[in-house]
Amino acid sequence: MTDEELHELAGKQVALGEMRGAPAPDPVNVPMIRHWLTAMGDTNPAYLDQGLAPPAMAQVWTMQGAGQNRSPVDDLLAALNGSGYTGVVATNCEQTYHRYARVGELLTPATRLTGLAGPKRTALGVGFFATWNVTWYGDGDEPVAEMMFRVLKFRPREPEPERRPPYPLQPAVNQDTAFFWEGAKQEELRIQCCADCGELRHPPGPMCSRCRSANRSHTVASGAGTLYSYVVHHHPPVPGRATPFVVGVVELPEGVRIVGNVVDCPIGEVEIGMRLKVTYRAMDDRLVLPVWAPEES
């Protein structure tokens, strides 16, 4: 819903005026009062002595399970949620007590929406302030207590994406090589394939050196490989890397070789001829590297 539509809906709901809800499930009663006083640590003897409920309990009597007590507020809150204003925080609660409710009395709430203000910029995010009133009627249909309640429905700020430091060893990429790096992001090991003669080639380039075609395609490698050679880098330190680490030349069954790290394998167990399978490592928010793990792991 647009902001204007939200205001329109609010206007309609305000126009509905006060809507009665279901009466409290139980009359005002001593056990609940005693329970409440105990929990609050309130030692005021007046209530139980006089058979009166603490006034701040007004709302307690009519607390309902969700959805049982439709009020003009519900549709508006649902619309705000649906429009992205999913955050909620109460800002004001103002209660006025005409008299204390009496033990045995059955309270009935009535709700009316009184206003929607916004959107406004707040510390929590952009949001709307929704205000409604609840009146509790007692025996004889006279108001016992009233409450003005205001909430801020806000659009939660995008949680700060977990910022990984940019990986310092970025590849240079151009139109001849972009397909490979795009593939890595999708966890595909793409090998350039001549669209005319089918020759596979890695590293890729703009021309097929076999048939001179510039029509390029790619195939997705099976992800299997055999270690053809490798180094264990110890020194000097390399930016973005913890030493020691292993880099290998991997021979693919498709017939090309590719360089990549050998991971998830104790360095002492790395050996030429070992069978590997491709896996992928996100180095930062934009670079994914295909790397190689032992086939059995």
């Binding site: 060893l169 590849p171 001849d176 090589t177 590293p203 880098h233 670079l287």
Partner: peptide, 14 residues
């Protein structure tokens, strides 16, 4: 730069 790009990102750069 492109040639190096098949190696340097893996830390193979000395």
């Amino acid at each position: 730069g492109l040639e190096m790009s098949w190696h340097v990102p893996y830390g193979l750069m000395t």
